[in-house]
Simulated assay, not measured.
Amino acid sequence: MRTLYLDCFSGISGNMFVGMMLQNDISLEGLKETFSRLPVSGYSLICEPVVKQGIQAQYYDVVLDGERAKHEHCCPDEHEYRREHHHEHVHEHPHAHGHHHHVHVHRGLREIKEIIEKADLSAAVKAKSCAVFETLAIAEGKVHGLPPEEVHFHEVGAVDCILDIVGAVWALEESGIEQIGVSPLHTGSGFIQCAHGLMPVPAPATAEILTGLPFYGTAIDGELVTPTGAALVKTLAAYAGPRPEDFVHERIIYGAGTKDLEIPNVLRGYIGEYKMF
């Protein structure tokens, strides 16, 4: 089976995952065309090769209109999972004449699923993308004592997270990846500043998602695993643990994070044929 093994020695985020897949000869034009099928707009994509401590990796990110470039490793705050220290909270809201006005919009799981299910995508991409959002909603609900359907996402419901998740799932299908394994996840350590004050790393929602997965921290300070990254591996990986010794890879791909750390801030993927985990 066509297998992708994720080596998360510097954590994982949604945009690191998509960047990594773009290094696997996934066409950026194909990704843009796929995104054009989603009923969202008001964004542009960054996609460029970068070098992280001598390792060439692909950097990918979504930039909302009027927004400065973001950083993916930052504090999640309950419904504001990504990058909120780096930009105003802007969210897509349908406006008259087909234009979009960026205002605060809270989206529930049902609304996000509708956005995905309305799109002209394969049934598998829709189902897996919705399942990743369900993983996020279940974890968020558990932290706040709410059933998943009552969780209202703030930043997670924003355009960038929808694109990260759908983009990751689509790229896996496009690459013919049939199964995923994931290493123990390096979460970082310390505390991160959130709206409610200092939160430990991994942040509460991320820690919930990581239930059942091996993870560890080191002296590297900060958050390396985002909820989106954790939800992708929790939902899609069939195996979590050390790289199997008999897994012979044919190719290695790298997706870059934004920050420069003491270690190369990249997500490494090994691709090869392997029996079912």
Rank of each mutant, 00 (worst) to 15 (best):
A127D: 07
K128L: 02
S129G: 01
A131P: 00
T135V: 14
T135P: 05
T135M: 08
L136F: 06
A137V: 05
I138P: 03
I138T: 12
A139W: 04
E140Q: 13
E140W: 06
G141S: 08
G145Y: 11
G145C: 09
L146R: 13
L146M: 14
L146P: 01
L146C: 12
P147H: 07
P148R: 14
E149Y: 09
E150G: 03
E150V: 03
E150L: 12
V151H: 10
F153A: 01
H154S: 11
E155G: 10
V156K: 01
A158P: 00
A158Y: 03
V159A: 02
V159T: 07
C161S: 15
D164P: 01
I165D: 00
I165V: 15
I165R: 01
I165S: 01
V166C: 03
V166E: 01
A168E: 00
E173M: 08
E173Q: 13
E173H: 08
E174M: 08
S175C: 15
S175D: 11
S175F: 02
G176S: 07
G176A: 11
G176W: 15
Q179G: 03
Q179M: 12
I180P: 00
G181D: 02
G181A: 07
S183K: 11
H186L: 06
T187D: 00
S189N: 10
G190T: 06
F191K: 15
I192L: 15
I192M: 08
I192C: 04
I192E: 00
Q193N: 13
Q193G: 10
C194D: 08
H196S: 09
H196G: 02
G197C: 11
G197N: 10
L198H: 14
L198Q: 12
L198G: 05
M199T: 10
V201W: 02
P202V: 05
P204S: 08
A205Q: 10
A205V: 15
T206K: 07
A207M: 12
L210T: 08
T211E: 15
T211D: 11
G212C: 05
L213H: 08
L213K: 07
L213M: 15
F215P: 02
F215I: 09
G217H: 09
G217P: 07
T218R: 09
A219R: 13
I220V: 15
I220N: 12
D221Q: 11
E223D: 03
P227V: 13
T228I: 07
G229S: 05
L232G: 05
K234D: 03
K234E: 02
L236W: 04
A237S: 14
A237K: 05
A237R: 05
A238H: 12
A240Q: 04
G241L: 06
P242R: 15
P242D: 14
P242G: 06
P244N: 13
E245S: 12
E245Y: 02
